[in-house]
Simulated scan of single mutants.
Amino acid sequence: MKHANVSGNKNESLGRRARGLTRVGGAWGLSVSLAAAAALAQAQAPSASAPAPAPKPADSSFTWNGITLYGIVDIGVQYQTHGVPASDYFPAGTEAIILANSNGSVTAVTPSNLSQSRIGLSGKEPLVGDWSGVFRFETFFNPQSGNISDALKSQVLNNGRPAATQTTNVDSSIAGQYFAGAAYAGFSSPTYGTITFGRHVTPLADGVGKYDALGAANAFSLIGFSGTTAGGGVTEDRRLDQSLKYSAKLGAVHLGALYQFSGSSGTTNTAH
Rank of each mutant, 00 (worst) to 15 (best):
G76I: 11
A96D: 15
I72L: 15
S117T: 10
Y70K: 04
P111F: 08
Q116I: 05
A86D: 02
I75A: 12
T63H: 09
S122V: 04
Q80L: 07
G123I: 04
N65F: 14
P53M: 05
N65V: 10
I119R: 06
E95M: 03
G123P: 03
I67H: 11
E95K: 05
F90T: 02
S112L: 11
K124E: 15
V77W: 10
Q80N: 10
G120S: 03
I98W: 09
K124H: 12
W64S: 05
T63G: 05
D74V: 05
F90W: 14
D88T: 01
W64N: 05
Y79F: 02
Y79D: 01
F62A: 15
A96M: 00
A52T: 04
Y89M: 03
T110D: 00
G83T: 02
V73H: 15
H82L: 11
N65I: 10
A100R: 09
A92M: 06
L99M: 12
P85D: 08
T63Y: 02
N65L: 14
G71M: 02
K56M: 03
P53G: 06
P85K: 08
A58E: 15
A58G: 13
Y79Q: 02
V84Q: 08
P55K: 09
N113Q: 12
G123S: 04
A108Y: 02
P57W: 08
A48L: 15
W64Y: 12
V73P: 09
A92L: 03
I97F: 08
I119T: 05
L69D: 13
P91K: 09
A92T: 09
L69M: 14
A100E: 14
L114V: 08
V77P: 00
S122L: 11
G71Y: 03
P55E: 10
S60V: 12
G104P: 07
L121G: 09
K124R: 15
F90Q: 11
T68Y: 10
N101Y: 04
P51V: 06
D59C: 04
T81A: 01
N65A: 15
R118M: 14
V106D: 00
G93F: 04
T81Q: 11
S102M: 07
P85H: 12
I98E: 12
G83Q: 00
T107A: 04
T107H: 05
A48K: 14
S47R: 15
N113E: 13
S105T: 13
V77E: 06
N103G: 02
V109F: 12
S112V: 07
G123Q: 07
I97W: 11
Q116H: 04
S122A: 11
D88A: 04
P53T: 04
I72T: 13
K124F: 08
P51A: 08
G93T: 00
E95F: 01
D88Q: 05
I67S: 09
Y89E: 01
S102V: 05
I97P: 01
L121N: 14
G76A: 12
A52H: 03
A92G: 09
N103A: 00
D59Y: 00
I97Q: 10
T110L: 00
T94L: 09
G93R: 05
P91T: 08
G104M: 14
P111R: 09
T94I: 07
Y79N: 00
Y79S: 05
N103S: 00
G123A: 07
S60Q: 13
A58N: 14
T94A: 08
A52L: 03
A58F: 14
A92P: 02
A96T: 13
H82T: 07
V106R: 03
N103T: 00
V106E: 02
G123V: 05
V84D: 01
P57Q: 10
I119H: 04
I72M: 11
